[in-house]
């Protein structure tokens, strides 16, 4: 992959660079709901990871193969039974958390098969979403492009929601990165950030 392509991917998906920053070179990575394999390809090129993706969608399977990344066709909501305990350094759920049905079970599975977990999701607490709700409509934006009736996002949450959920699931958050576009947001992140990225491990 050329530098141009890497830069293009990083620009399109600001969470990619944030995720890559936490991953050491040569790590083993499982990307759940890996879509067309862009993130895995990005991590392969920039971090030389040994990566596998899990994806259910037929078209995405072909795209992953075109991208030259490993992909296992499976439904995340049926669990990760193909994978052994502690098989990966990192298990990533990039822009997929909000579309999973059994979210709590899946986060637990992530930390069974991986030493660390990384999730990124659209922050429902972002001010634009709040404005939509105030105006009496469900939010539709660049990061949430769906109408309420055709959205795959059944479990949307805010930064505060995810952090409370982590406590409940005995998940120990070790780092957080909140983005608005390519910019990292440090001031009022739950209001000003559109994308949240968390790094976590098993709590004690």
């Amino acid at each position: 992959m050329s530098n141009d392509e890497i830069n293009r991917l990083a620009a399109e998906r600001p969470d990619f660079a944030a995720i890559a920053a936490w991953i050491p070179k040569g790590a083993s990575v499982l990307d759940l709901g890996c879509g067309d394999g862009s993130l895995l390809r990005y991590l392969k090129e920039t971090r030389s990871v040994k990566g596998y993706g899990v994806e259910i969608n037929d078209m995405d399977i072909v795209s992953c193969l075109v991208n030259g990344v490993n992909v296992i066709q499976n439904d995340l909501d049926s669990g990760l039974s193909d994978f052994e305990d502690n098989a990966f350094d990192f298990v990533i759920l990039s822009q997929t958390l909000q579309a999973t049905r059994h979210t709590e079970a899946l986060v637990k599975e992530m930390l069974r098969v991986g030493h660390e977990g990384i999730v990124s999701f659209p922050n429902f607490g972002h001010w634009q979403n709040r404005l939509h709700i105030l105006a009496g409509r469900m939010p539709v934006s660049r990061v949430l492009p769906y109408q309420w009736y055709d959205t795959p996002n059944v479990h949307l949450c805010t930064l505060h929601d995810f952090e409370a959920f982590s406590k409940r699931c005995a998940v120990n958050i070790t780092a957080r990165s909140v983005m608005m576009g390519e910019r990292e947001i440090r001031f009022l992140p739950n209001l000003l950030g559109s994308t949240a990225v968390y790094r976590f491990q098993r709590g004690i």
């Binding site: 992909v71 296992i72 499976n74 193909d82 052994e84």
Partner: peptide
């Protein structure tokens, strides 16, 4: 077929798996 995939994952082989409808 998954029984083929599992030992390959265990041994860190590059492997992809497609289940065709």
């Amino acid at each position: 077929s998954r029984e083929i995939v599992q030992p390959l994952l265990h041994n860190r082989r590059n492997v992809s798996y497609a289940e065709i409808t």
